[in-house]
Amino acid sequence: MSFTLNKGELAAIVGVNGIGKSTLLRTLCGFQPELMGSVHINGDELNTIEPQYLAQQISVVLTETMASKNMSVKELLALGRQPYTNWLGSLSKKDISVIADSVSLMELTPFLNKKCFELSDGQLQRVMIARALVQDTSIILLDEPTTHLDLYHKVQIFKLLKSIAHKTNKTVLFTSHEIELAIQLCDKMLILDGQTNPFEQPCKLIANNCFDTLFPSDTISFDAVTGSFKIKK
């Protein structure tokens, strides 16, 4: 596979279970070495970038449970400034301003003093995305950001991610099983099919019949007109 992401774009990695979506995302952020090939950020090869500088370029939101949910929302958000603070972790006026902007964008003011364990899944996910925003990177990577959320909150998160990409000119890439929502909201999509792994705008992927063979045809078919999957009864 070969693909390029630009600033201000929302992109999704989709595919069946076990195809390698999370593996690819972890490779892109340097959490595990490449199986082959290379990853470049602004022309620099990923494995040559110093960790602190890399933390100023990429922020990551994973599906793993937090190490401690006893932190307040305010404390968790402040950790996002770690790549920029001194060894004491003191927050400057700029740090506080960046945190305030992220809180405003994600509408988290009512939750600042709450402990993370007091939040619903949807609220906590918004906090984790806000922490990534506080890190102030040009690239945000998210692994299954809508897991365990109902349809309304899935749509809410996806629309927030699109707004973040377009309004702040950041590159936002996420893995997801929510293919139909991604088709409606993403600028680009990468379909991991184990063969050609096409990467394009959703409308072009539909025109090229790229979704037609994603699932067994005797069970699920893709309707190009509505951009949705149909179950064969």
Rank of each mutant, 00 (worst) to 15 (best):
T65G: 03
Y152M: 09
S97W: 10
F31I: 08
F111N: 11
N86L: 08
A207I: 02
R81F: 09
Q82S: 15
I49W: 03
N208F: 00
S38V: 06
M106C: 15
R81M: 12
S102I: 08
T23P: 00
D187E: 06
D143M: 00
D187Y: 03
H166Y: 07
P216C: 09
S217P: 00
V103C: 09
F3K: 00
T65D: 15
I220M: 11
F215Y: 15
I206T: 03
T146Y: 03
K114L: 14
A224I: 06
D150Q: 04
E144G: 02
Q82F: 14
A55M: 01
L77I: 11
K230P: 05
V103I: 15
N17A: 09
I41C: 02
L142D: 12
A55Q: 05
Y53L: 15
Q123A: 09
Q56W: 04
S228C: 13
E75F: 01
L28T: 03
V134Q: 09
T146C: 13
L149T: 13
T65P: 07
P216M: 09
E200H: 03
L190M: 05
D136C: 06
F211E: 02
T168R: 15
F222K: 02
K93L: 14
Q56P: 05
L173T: 10
Q184M: 11
K159N: 15
I206V: 12
I220L: 13
P33H: 06
N70K: 13
V155N: 06
I139H: 09
S176P: 07
A182D: 06
L190H: 01
G43A: 08
Q201S: 13
N70G: 07
K232W: 02
Y84T: 11
L10G: 10
V134W: 07
T4D: 13
V98G: 04
D150C: 07
K204M: 12
F215L: 10
I13M: 00
S217C: 10
E9L: 01
L24N: 00
T85N: 08
S90R: 13
L124G: 12
I183S: 08
F31G: 08
H177F: 07
P110E: 12
T137R: 01
L214A: 06
L105F: 13
I164N: 07
E178H: 08
F215A: 05
